[in-house]
């Protein structure tokens, strides 16, 4: 004891080091190989609003789950190993619970410590909207105008999660001129309808529609994102516009099975 380590020690060290380097190479190559499989293009998972490009997201997200905890409607979940290297990263399953923006200030982005869900884009959008408002009213916003609501709409517009698409017009009830009568959702989920202050449980709300327009009526972005268009003979079809950010509320509410309207993640569209 006490003296300098012997050569046996050094040999042992070198042997262990060699093992370590081999295993690190294997793990590293596996990660490199799985990178392609883990991309959103393959897994098709919808990221929370304001997520940075997938290329950056996969390392920027440290998988802490703070976004999961802050979301008031519990829309965000963490992916498992079936999403390969996206394991532990947040996603939204719009079939179960879509992002309805009812937290107002995009709290998942605000809470993210690494900026994987980037709050800066929302802050800038909100600031810009306020400046424009000041300019519009000559520096004095009248008391009947609520700048907060205008800022919130501006923040929603830059969320850019994806875009809704009609999978098959034949599936859509409105396409056949049909109405819808029944619960707003088949399972329990939260939603704050546009213009309302309260969240509702979609399974406990009964709706009656002469022509089914749930995807249009409850869209958090309103008519700038989706509108019901008559295509003749009492037939209708929702038209998705440039204003759609892909929050998934339309997908959550669509009563058909399979869904006539689904959200394609941003990266999958590109």
């Amino acid at each position: 004891m006490g003296g300098k380590p012997t050569t046996t020690n050094r040999r042992q060290f070198l042997k262990a080091t060699a093992t370590a380097i081999v295993s690190l190479t294997v793990v590293g190559s596996a990660a490199y190989y799985l990178r392609d499989k883990s991309s959103v293009q393959k897994t098709g998972i919808l990221r929370p609003p304001g997520s940075v490009d997938e290329e950056d997201f996969l390392y920027a997200c440290i998988k802490c789950g703070l976004c999961v905890q802050i979301c008031p409607v519990h829309a965000i979940k963490l992916a498992d190993w079936d999403a390969f290297l996206s394991y532990g990263t947040p996603y939204i399953d719009a079939n179960v619970q879509a992002c309805d923006f009812s937290c107002d200030a995009i709290q998942c982005a605000e809470t993210c410590p690494t900026g994987a869900i980037d709050f800066q884009i929302f802050r800038r959008a909100g600031d810009r909207a306020y400046e424009q408002l000041l300019k519009q009213y000559g520096g004095q916003i009248p008391p009947d105008v609520n700048p907060f609501e205008i800022q919130i709409m501006a923040m929603r517009r830059v969320a850019n999660m994806g875009k809704a698409v009609i999978t098959d017009p034949q599936q859509c009830l409105a396409y056949h001129g049909k109405g819808y009568s029944g619960p707003l959702g088949k399972h329990h989920a939260l939603l704050r309808p546009p213009g309302s202050k309260e969240r509702i449980d979609i399974a406990e709300v009964h709706v009656e529609r002469e022509i089914c327009d749930l995807c249009v009526a409850y869209c958090p972005l309103g008519s700038e994102a989706i509108e019901l268009k008559e295509i003749g003979n009492g037939k209708y079809l929702p038209e998705i516009k440039d204003g759609c950010v892909g929050c998934g509320v339309c997908q959550m509410l669509c009563p058909t099975d399979p869904k006539a309207i689904v959200v394609e993640p941003r990266e999958k569209l590109a």
């Binding site: 262990a16 080091t17 370590a20 380097i21 690190l24 793990v27 590293g28 990660a31 490199y32 990178r35 290329e55 996969l58 390392y59 997200c61 440290i62 998988k63 290297l85 532990g88």
Partner: peptide, 19 residues
């Protein structure tokens, strides 16, 4: 070696491989 190695792997693959 693992401490440095996982940082190198992270740098090369641009993934939080250790995580």
């Amino acid at each position: 070696v693992f401490w440095i190695g996982f940082l190198v792997v992270a740098f090369l693959t641009q993934q939080l491989v250790f995580e």
